Amino acid sequence: MTSEDLPEAISQGRLRIDQVDQRLITLIGERKTISEQVQAARLSAGGIRTDTKQEMRVITRYAQALGPAGRDIALSLLALARGAHQPQEEPPLPNDDTPLLAASVQQPDGTPDRLRRQIEFIIEVDRLKDVFRQSPLLAANRKENDAEHSWHLALMTLVLAEYADEPIDTSKVLALVVLHDLVEIYAGDTFLHDTAAAVDQEAREQQAADKLFTLLPADQRDHFRSLWDEFEERSTPEARFAKSMDQLQPLLLNYGNRGGTWRTPGVTEQDLLAGKSLIKDASADLWRYAQNLIHTGAENGWLPRI
């Protein structure tokens, strides 16, 4: 090939690439349609929307054929087929005029007052399942809710307690992580990178705590409120470890989703490191791991390195 032939070769090559791209786009659209039909058939038969085993087979197939980039392509195809580009509608928060959920549940005659109040509290906190966070799930095409988040923190506590730098009472950490987000029933979730919402976050959550915990008998009201305050203040080894779980868990979800909320405009690697730095107050090992997640995410292009 002479130098005179080079521009023509480039032009022809680019034309062929454009043609291949168009065929790929058509095939991806066809794949998406078929996948949606399979999902609809599975749901109508009483099954789940996402077949995790099948998705893992797809990921393995692409990774074996194309290497690490193939895994990313497979994840993008799977997300597209699940409709991950569709925004999720956020339910409205209850206000002061919203009746308690227990108002629609008639307690059996003869229920002792203390038990009645405890059951009313338990019913009311069912609202936590309808408070959605920003982190995307790995197992389904939607955002995580607060109840799922709290459960995940409890399980992480049981699994990762050995990495605490200070001796901790695991049962107390479990109580802290189960209670810590209950106030978001009334206050809503505040996204880590939403600086505007953070301005009145403390006031909203304090007001919500005052409202929620008063549903309980006085002794439990005071005990639960003191645990919630302890978590917020990070005044004990247990509270610091509970907070580290709260900060680590979204990292796992977002890393597994190839960035997830890290792709929020304006968020950088340094922002994320600063926002998650409380992990180091509880566990040097888990902080090193968290830093590795963030650095690797930046290296992969999932958030800017600034």
Rank of each mutant, 00 (worst) to 15 (best):
M1H: 15
T2G: 15
E4W: 13
P7A: 07
A9G: 05
A9S: 15
G13T: 04
R14D: 05
L15A: 14
I17H: 04
D18Y: 02
D18V: 00
L27K: 13
G29V: 00
K32T: 12
K32L: 05
T33H: 10
I34L: 12
E36C: 11
Q37T: 12
Q39H: 13
R42Q: 13
T52D: 09
Q54M: 09
V58L: 10
Y62I: 01
L66W: 12
G67R: 09
D72M: 08
A74M: 03
R82W: 13
G83T: 12
Q86C: 11
P87L: 06
Q88P: 04
L93V: 01
P94Y: 09
D96R: 12
D96H: 12
D97K: 13
A103C: 13
S104E: 10
P108A: 12
P108V: 02
P108H: 04
D109E: 12
T111Q: 07
P112N: 07
R116L: 09
R117D: 10
F121M: 11
I123T: 10
D126Q: 14
F132T: 00
P136S: 07
A139L: 09
A139F: 10
N145W: 03
S150W: 06
W151L: 15
H152V: 04
M156L: 14
M156W: 02
D165S: 09
D165M: 03
E166M: 05
D169T: 10
T170Q: 10
K172M: 06
A175M: 10
H180V: 04
D181R: 01
L182W: 06
L182Q: 07
I185H: 06
Y186S: 00
G188D: 02
F191C: 03
F191L: 04
H193C: 10
T195W: 11
A196I: 14
A196Q: 14
A198I: 07
V199E: 14
D200R: 01
A203T: 06
A203C: 00
T214Y: 11
H223D: 12
S226F: 04
S226T: 13
E233S: 14
A239V: 05
K243S: 14
S244Y: 04
L248N: 04
P250L: 05
N254R: 03
Y255F: 15
G259Y: 03
W262N: 01
R263Y: 00
G266V: 08
A274M: 07
A274Y: 04
K276D: 05
S277A: 15
I279E: 03
I279W: 03
D281P: 03
A282M: 05
L286D: 01
A290S: 15
A290Q: 08
L293M: 11
T296W: 06
G297Y: 01
N300L: 10
P304E: 03
I306S: 07
I306K: 08
